[in-house]
């Protein structure tokens, strides 16, 4: 397969996704003595275009390497970043690619990608239990890390009232922290 430059990859996403494409950027950092470049691409898409974006990665790399889903609670919405890498196998040629989607807290659902990448199952199960994002059509929706005795509706990575604060044990003589308290 033909290898595109980072900017050409961003442009190909824009062309492919049309209105579903929100933004794209390239991050570069020089490392060590020889100042070789370390490159990462960021692409933000709408949820409706998310699966098309993942399918588009398959046009760039036969087996895209899927690394992890990271999720952040941004207050009124939850941001998911699907971290991929493409063009691996050769010195200095690999590119990291982060597909970013933002979901409103009123509708925390995302389509599964396990039909495209079977190795995404643990990441989707983890996002589901830790962040409370429902993965639609997930083949195995059981909990992965959280034990059975943790009540439903508690999501450890959330920073709102569904966070784990009320499950924390407070040591004698110490005051419990309020949700949203810093420091």
């Amino acid at each position: 397969m033909e290898r595109l430059t980072p900017q050409a990859i961003i442009d190909s996403f824009r062309k492919e996704l049309g209105k579903g494409f929100i933004s794209g950027s390239v991050y570069e950092r020089e490392v060590a003595v020889k100042k070789n470049k370390f490159r990462r691409l960021w692409v933000e898409v709408k949820r409706s275009a998310f699966r098309d974006a993942v399918k588009h990665i398959f046009r760039l790399q036969e087996y895209p390497h899927f690394v992890i889903i990271s999720s952040s609670d941004l207050g009124s919405e939850v941001e998911l970043i699907y971290h991929f890498t493409i063009y691996y196998g050769h010195h200095l040629e690999e590119l990291s690619l982060g597909i970013r989607i933002k979901l409103p807290k009123s509708d925390l659902t995302v389509p599964t990608i396990t039909d495209l990448i079977p190795g995404a199952i643990f990441m989707e199960r983890e996002t589901q239990e830790m962040m409370g994002v429902k993965v639609m059509d997930i083949p195995d929706g059981r909990r992965l890390f959280i034990s059975e005795d943790v009540p439903e509706g508690i999501y450890p990575w959330r920073k709102d009232e569904t966070g784990p604060q009320k499950l924390l044990r407070v040591l004698p003589g110490r005051q419990p922290k309020k949700a949203g308290d810093e420091g």
Partner: peptide, 10 residues
């Protein structure tokens, strides 16, 4: 090899 970081880039 693929995306060397730190001194591996050299």
């Amino acid at each position: 090899q693929d995306q060397p970081y730190s001194a591996y880039a050299d």
